[in-house]
């Protein structure tokens, strides 16, 4: 199965929140969608699952349009971030009721798993959603996502509000479920570093546009931070893709991406260091800070 979007656009006013995005999500991978606040992550994911209409462009699952298509929607689950502070009343629904409603709509709903997770997270099922802490609400969305058993399951900021132990537990649960079923997961997050090792592919969204879709390890492996005397650094990285650089007096640091076969010019007196996904992300998306 493949979830494909083609030239997808969402316009609010005069601004393209999602700007001509084309993407193919394959079965059996864990994808990470990373982007800054307001990059258009939730809008993109909403359109991929037919929760929001697109201004233009198409979304298809195995060639069939997703919009208003029950057969396609049966394979999709987009567990949204629950924002109950707004005056819209979803907060008045009890946890138990919310899970029951979810079970109506997902054909593969695993009530055993839902029950196990509720116990594991120690969720107060009789409480209304608006009485729950941010972390607890995240756990509710995680329960829905995992128990839905949908072939393509999307989680929007699943670790928001979770403490470090709960985050680690979430990723372990996710990997367990992934190993057992081979479902596709898409995780949008801006807590990047912890997620980096879990994500097979990473999609970087910036100002509504896709900057890159890459194998996470390959992307991180191709990135280097070169530092030293400015002239030496310039010589070492000449002809390479420099993404971001900063200078301080005579010294300079530059983030470069090596294409296959390329290398930092040997013999220059510079320090070459590997960098992590978070720094790759900042190098790619942090430009306008200058």
């Amino acid at each position: 199965m493949k979830l494909v979007c083609n030239d997808l656009v969402k316009t609010y006013g005069h601004k393209n929140a999602v700007d001509h995005v084309s993407l193919t999500l394959e079965q059996g991978k864990i994808y990470g969608l990373i982007g800054r606040n307001g990059a258009g992550k939730t809008t993109l994911l909403s359109m991929l699952t037919a929760q929001n209409p697109a201004t233009s462009g198409t979304v298809t699952l195995d060639g069939e349009p997703v919009w208003e298509n029950r057969r396609a929607l049966d394979h999709l689950c987009f567990s949204r971030e629950l924002n109950v502070s707004q005056e819209n009343g979803v907060g008045a629904i009890k946890v138990k009721e919310y899970l029951r409603l979810a079970s109506y709509y997902y054909p593969g709903w695993d009530s055993q798993l839902a029950k196990r997770l509720v116990e594991l997270f120690d969720l107060p099922v009789k409480k209304k959603l608006m009485k729950l802490s941010k972390g607890m609400l995240s756990m509710v969305t995680i329960v829905v996502a995992l128990a839905s058993k949908a072939a393509f399951t999307i989680l929007d900021e699943p670790v928001a509000g979770l403490d470090v132990v709960a985050r680690e537990n979430f990723y372990k649960l996710l990997l367990e479920e992934y190993a057992a079923t081979g479902r596709t997961f898409v995780i949008s997050t801006h807590i990047i570093e912890e997620a980096a090792d879990v994500l097979e592919e990473v999609i970087i969204l910036h100002q509504g546009k896709i900057l890159t879709v890459a194998n996470t390890q390959e992307l991180v492996d191709s990135a280097r931070y070169v530092s030293g005397r400015a002239e030496d650094v310039d010589a070492a990285v000449e002809g390479l893709t420099v993404c971001h650089s900063e200078t301080m007096g005579r010294s300079k640091g530059a983030t470069v991406f090596l294409k296959p076969g390329e290398q930092i010019r040997p013999g220059c007196d510079v320090t070459v260091q590997p960098i992590n996904l978070q720094k790759v992300f900042v190098a790619m998306c942090g430009e306008e800070a200058h």
Binding site: E68, C77, G89, Y105
Partner: peptide
């Protein structure tokens, strides 16, 4: 009244079609 404010977005978020 509430349906427009709460239930429609709720069921759509759980994967209902608009027709349903």
């Amino acid at each position: 009244f509430t349906t427009h404010l709460v239930y429609f977005p709720l069921v759509l978020s759980l994967g209902s079609t608009r027709r349903e």
